[in-house]
Design a protein around this nucleic acid. Structure first.
Length: 873
RNA sequence: GGGCGCGUAGCUCAGUGGGAGAGCGCUCGCUUCACACGCGAGAGGUCGCAGGUUCGAAACCCGCCGCGCCCA
């Protein structure tokens, strides 16, 4: 590497370095493992496939950073590591985007026809799809880009069909007329999980129905238009007021239908009058009551969101809201509306189209979940799938315990079409992977079901369908099950739970050992980050401004076990770290290069400690390696990132480099062996630091690895594990003591207004500085005076307490001694109060008797230390 | 209605039984021969409120107030 370039370039420039570093990584083939390549075992992660139409948002950037840290760390640990990449066809989302584009041309999908429309979507995908994969590269994500999957690829589609057929044959998949969440926006049924409840205030109307044979009931409803479909009136069986009503008949106003009065536990006695209209075709709860009591189902709202002929001539064709007004007006004219009250309740909306859900009865395909859920519950309960953080475990188990059938058919065109065929002649139903040419029963012509599967049905197969299942491929053998699934919690039910169920059902094993649920990054003001709110922050823009390393570090550092606000400061901290590391390496290399008799290319980069600070940094390096590894193992990315920062700033740069500077001077006074040894040690420390930080900030570390003379690409290098033989508690203690003393002395200097450059004559009257006295003196800007040397006869003008005693200052030139006196008084006061506190504690018999011995002992030692310090002042 | 979580320095957050912490911001001082994306020093907190357990509580328990999310 060109050392001259390094000399001139005083800052790390991510926009210059990062793109070319990505190219080097991609060209290396490091990200594409071959099955069974490493004897150390395999490590794999299946990426949550982003929507093919999507672009990178903060959630992707965070999850990409998390997964890449895990992938790079394990790759460097020698495991055969694969990050499975791909995109999701995202049925509704993609179809809606293309429909929007068509609308701009004045076209609709129905005008185009199914085949042409689907072709348009494929075209659209090839033009605009997959951008996000390029964006993952820019982030530095080390996915296996050479094997990108798509959930609608041929092989994947075969896996989907095979799963459908198998589940159908087991009786888990069935067709039913059932109440579903109808989304008038997409004109499709959607699953319970795609429905979002919103609090809204509506008018609660009280309406009087006559009873046959005299009397009335009064029902309360926010949806008077659905009364046209009422088929019963219900009261609670324990409601004493209405005991006599049960079994009588009410007359439905406007329609005249006879409604039985039934008793059902569902009815709340304290809501409204305690009398409830039952509309099985337009309310999920009423539907269940209807099934329990064998009530008729009358549908008055159609799939277009308008009233049907069943609603009667006066109302047919009206929208739901128009019908509501018309029905209320009609009831009013009969004097049946007795009250209107504002009422706050939750209203279902489609997560997909944003429109209000219309519950209605529809012929759909469903999947029974109970049998699949049982082993998926067991897997989490017995720990074969571990959910981190653990509190999500309970959320998962609670939801799984109450799992309901899943509506899997969608009235869309973009997606996996159901492998279901109907005979035109005999109406027989055939479910098969390969389409029958004619009806196997009667030979008649067959046609395929129009519906496609819910996107999540195919996503549920992701970890194994991407590896070639149902074929027993080498990839499947090597990389399944995957090690961890990292995701935000919003798709725990939609996706994660279903993957566990399908994985166990079809491969006999859960698809991953651990599920890591990461933070949701909110806008800085605490709102949701979203395009529509205008609160989104584009990770690529941030990468452009601060570099991918900075964004990765920032996101990891701000992440937590709960939701967090986006912190631009953390990203800047990451940028500062990259630059700091760059400059530390730059300093080390330039100084090594300038050492007479030392040649960088001849150095091995092995530790050759000669002094206490050498032993100290090597020991601290082992500690930080162990801590980083431990944090990664428990998915504590924020502390992993921050401990790197603290090490680089707080130990390597602020102290070690400052401590060794004089030993790297250029006047040639040091012996060549010593220069060489220090160069070795410094190079070792820099290489190790850069390697250990690589999973978090891969770009700057890869760049520096080249300058530092590392072998090959760092991305393919070895992660430096902690070496216990380099641990040195004594050196750690000695240098920690020196650091504390220097800090105290600097504080003292400031308080006596000593000019920054002033060298103060002083004497160390304290224990434990044998090896560090000159270091302390230099960094605290003292001139050490020996007992019988130059200034020895001068009197002590100040004593600065430091661990183990004090530093006595001799000579007052340039010092504000009044300030020194004030400082000394303040210090004495502080010590006095601490001593008093400590004494009081030890005088407390309860404390001495009940606190653990070591705590009492520590308190005694502390008191002794304080007394020594106050003595020294 | 049920569940989960949060409330600590101006801001964002860490700390989970034994002397209140970090980053950023702020103040003061530094062209100290890697870095001003830098260096040194400093100010700043009744740890939401009220009770309890304990020799000892920011931390554990109970209640209240405020905020967020999930489920029904």
């Amino acid at each position: 590497m060109d050392i001259e370039r390094l000399r001139e370039q005083t800052r790390f420039e991510p926009t210059e370095v990062e793109p070319r570093t990505v190219e080097r990584w991609l060209a290396s083939g490091l990200f594409h493992p071959r099955p069974g390549e490493s004897g150390e075992g395999a490590y794999s992660i299946a990426i949550p496939p982003p929507n093919v139409t999507g672009t990178l948002h903060m959630g992707h950037a965070l999850n990409g950073s998390i997964q890449d840290v895990l992938i790079r760390y394990h790759r460097m640990r020698g495991l055969n590591t694969k990050w499975i990449l791909g995109t999701d066809h995202a049925g509704i989302a993609t179809q809606m985007q293309v429909e929007k584009a068509l609308a701009a041309e004045g076209l609709s999908r129905r005008e185009l026809g199914r085949e042409a429309f689907v072709e348009r979507v494929w075209d659209w995908r090839s033009h605009y799809g997959g951008q996000i994969v390029e964006q993952f590269k820019r982030l530095g994500a080390s996915c296996d880009y050479s094997e990108e999957r798509f959930t609608l690829d041929d092989g994947y589609a075969r896996a989907v069909a095979q799963v459908f057929v198998a589940l159908y044959e087991k009786g888990y998949i069935y067709r039913d007329r059932y109440i579903v969440n109808w989304d008038p926006g997409t004109r499709s049924a959607i699953s319970d999980l795609e429905v979002e409840e919103r609090e809204e205030t509506d008018t609660l109307y009280s309406i009087v129905y006559d009873l046959e044979g005299g009397g009335t009931v009064t029902i309360a409803t926010v949806r008077p238009e659905t009364m046209l479909a009422d088929t019963a009136v219900a009261v609670n069986p324990h409601d004493e007021r209405y005991k006599d009503l049960v079994g009588r008949t009410a007359i439905l106003p406007l329609v005249g239908r006879h409604l039985p009065v039934i008793a059902d536990e569902y009815v709340k006695t304290d809501f409204g009058t305690g009398q409830l209209k039952i509309t099985p075709a337009h309310d999920p709860n009423d539907f269940e009551i209807g099934r329990r009591h064998g009530l008729d189902q009358v549908s008055v709202i159609g799939e277009d969101g308008r009233m049907t002929a069943e609603a009667g001539e006066r109302f047919a064709g009206l929208t739901v809201l128009e019908a509501r007004e018309a029905v209320v007006a009609a009831l009013e004219s009969e004097g049946r509306v007795t009250a209107r009250d504002p009422y706050l309740h939750s209203v279902p909306y489609s997560h997909r189209s944003g429109q209000r859900i219309e519950p209605l009865i529809s012929l759909q395909w469903f999947m029974k979940m109970d049998e699949l859920a049982a082993p998926a519950i067991a897997a989490v309960r017995d720990g074969s799938v571990r959910i981190v953080p653990e509190n999500h475990r309970k959320v998962y188990l609670d939801w799984m315990a109450e799992i309901r059938p899943w509506c899997i058919s969608r009235q869309l065109w973009w997606g996996h079409r159901l492998p279901v065929y109907y005979c035109e002649s005999c109406r027989a139903v055939h479910v098969a992977v390969s389409p029958p040419q004619s009806c196997p029963a009667c030979g008649g012509p067959v046609y395929q079901d129009e519906d496609v599967l819910d996107t999540w049905f195919s996503s549920a197969l992701w970890p194994f369908a991407t590896l070639g299942w149902p074929e027993q491929t080498p990839e499947l053998g090597a990389f399944y099950p995957t090690d961890v699934l990292s995701t935000a919690r919003d798709i725990l039910f939609l996706w994660v739970a279903r993957m566990i169920m399908m994985g166990i059902e079809f491969t006999g094993r859960p698809p991953f050992r651990e599920v890591y649920i990461h933070s949701v990054i909110q806008a800085p003001d605490g709102r949701r980050m979203s395009k529509s709110l205008g609160t989104g922050i584009d990770p690529l823009k941030e990468i452009g401004k601060h570099g991918a390393d900075a964004v990765r570090f920032g996101l990891l550092a701000m992440s937590s076990t709960q939701d967090v606000r986006y912190s631009a400061k953390k990203v800047q901290q990451g940028q500062a770290l990259a630059n700091k590391l760059y400059n530390a390496a730059r300093f080390a290399l330039l100084r090594i290069a300038e050492q007479p008799g030392v040649e960088l290319s001849e150095l091995a980069g092995e530790p050759r400690p000669q002094t206490v600070e050498d032993r100290w940094i090597l020991s601290r390096l082992q500690a930080i390696k162990a801590e980083f590894a431990a944090r990664i193992e428990v998915y504590d990315f924020s502390h992993a990132a921050l401990c790197l920062y603290d090490f680089v700033y707080g130990e390597l740069c602020d102290w070690y480099i400052e401590l060794v500077k004089p030993r790297l001077d250029l006047d040639g006074s040091a012996a060549p062996q010593q220069r060489r040894a220090l160069s070795e040690t410094l190079l070792h420390v820099m290489r190790q630091t850069v390697a250990l930080a690589h999973p978090v900030i891969p770009f700057v570390t890869e760049e520096l690895w080249g300058y530092l003379g590392g072998q090959g690409l760092l991305a393919g290098g070895t992660w430096p594990q902690a070496q216990d033989d380099l641990r040195d508690p004594e050196a750690e203690q000695e240098v920690a003591r020196a650091i504390e003393a220097i800090t105290l002395l600097r504080g003292w200097r400031d308080s006596v207004n000593a000019k920054a450059g002033l060298i103060v004559p002083a004497r160390i009257a304290a224990e434990g500085y044998d090896d560090t006295a000159t270091l302390v003196a230099r960094l605290a800007r003292l001139e050490l005076v020996s007992r019988n040397g130059a200034h020895a006869e001068r009197s002590v003008v100040a004593a600065v307490p430091v661990p183990g005693g004090a530093v006595e200052v001799l000579g007052a030139e340039g010092l504000d001694l009044d300030a020194a006196q004030r400082r000394r008084d303040a210090e004495r006061e502080r010590l006095q109060s601490e001593i008093a506190r400590s004494q009081a504690k030890l005088a407390n018999e309860q404390f001495v008797a009940k606190a653990p011995a070591e705590v009492v002992e520590a308190e005694r030692a502390k008191l002794e230390r304080l007394r020594a310090e106050i003595e020294a002042v």
